[in-house]
């Protein structure tokens, strides 16, 4: 029954709340919380980014725009930013392929209890501390680690496969950490795909790749995009995985910003870099969303 019909069926004597009030009442708690927990700290950081030095002690407060010149004054930051973006793209890309495949398998090939169990197995890594997961990887992929031990069971003189302290190691750690987001968003998107559509395609002679790329991927696109955003944004700011798995190559915008807060005690520069990255990410999504909307309407 459409909602208008049920509304019309109510007794005329019962007074109804104006719809805007109901909407406001429902939104208020979460927006109040967001204001308190996200917007206010963000605003404070935004204000910090215009300061000359961290406002602690009895130093005079000096307002300046110099922090936003960081990319100009320290051009090596451009290289760091590019490294972060490429790590973000690799991680998101691998998550998309692997996560979509896993979600597809869950939706199309399992049912009932088996599906529930498999879903829980996807979520299981979320219940362990991220730091523990990353440190476990260091034991696996370092030279002479579990990976090497395992390979040398079969081939005793195998060269070391250890790749700790490389960019692939960072991507591996990040994919491990963020894959469940992609599996879940794709899973939900694929659940809503009507079985009849696929059967229709197959009855018209579509092979599996046609079904996959012409039907499943476009219909699950909202899930893929949501997952990509959920993963890409935290990944380009990640600092734990690059630091632990990256060794010498683990310098990303995340670690640079973290250093400004923890080591250099230069909160203004850290905030300015963070907001510059935020602006870049928003710009990317603004461009991206335009393209998506156009492709959806045509």
């Amino acid at each position: 029954m459409p909602p208008e019909a049920s509304a019309a069926g109510l007794p005329a004597t019962r007074r109804r709340m104006p719809s805007w009030l109901a909407t406001a009442a429902l939104l208020l708690p979460s927006y109040a919380w967001l204001t308190l927990a996200v917007l206010l700290p963000l605003a404070a950081m935004f204000a910090f980014s215009f300061l000359h030095a961290t406002p602690l002690g009895n130093k005079p407060v000096v307002w300046t725009l110099e922090q936003y010149r960081a990319f100009y004054d320290q051009p090596y930051l451009l290289g760091v930013a590019w490294a972060s973006l490429s790590i973000g793209l690799w991680t998101t890309g691998i998550c998309a392929v692997v996560g979509f495949a896993a979600a597809l398998a869950l939706v199309r090939a399992t049912a009932g209890r088996a599906r529930e169990t498999l879903l829980i197995l996807v979520l299981l890594p979320f219940w362990t501390n991220g730091l523990v997961r990353v440190f476990s990887w260091t034991m696996v992929i370092r030279e002479g680690g579990f990976l090497d031990v395992f390979v040398r069971w079969f081939w005793p003189s195998a060269p070391s496969l250890g790749f700790l302290y490389t960019t692939p190691a960072i991507v591996l750690g990040l994919v491990h950490g963020y894959l469940p987001y992609m599996v879940l968003t794709c899973y939900i998107a694929l659940l809503s795909v009507d079985e009849a559509v696929i059967e229709a395609a197959q009855s018209l002679g579509a092979r599996w790749w046609t079904v996959l790329f012409k039907i499943l991927v476009p219909l699950a696109a909202p899930g893929l995009v949501t997952g990509a955003i959920l993963i890409f944004v935290p990944v380009i700011g990640a600092f734990m995985e690059p630091r632990i798995l990256g060794g010498r190559v683990g310098v990303t915008m995340g670690t640079v910003i973290e250093d400004q807060f923890t080591q250099a005690f230069n909160w203004p520069l850290g905030s300015a870099l963070a907001f510059t990255m935020l602006a870049v990410v928003l710009a990317v999504f603004a461009t991206f969303s335009g393209v998506l909307r156009r492709s959806a309407t045509t």
Binding site: Y76, L77, G79, R248, G250, D259, Q260, Q263, A264
Partner: peptide, 14 residues
């Protein structure tokens, strides 16, 4: 000092 060390680290990573 901090900016210089950050630059050197980025050089190591590149």
């Amino acid at each position: 000092f901090n900016n210089l060390w950050q630059e050197v680290k980025a050089f190591y990573a590149a």
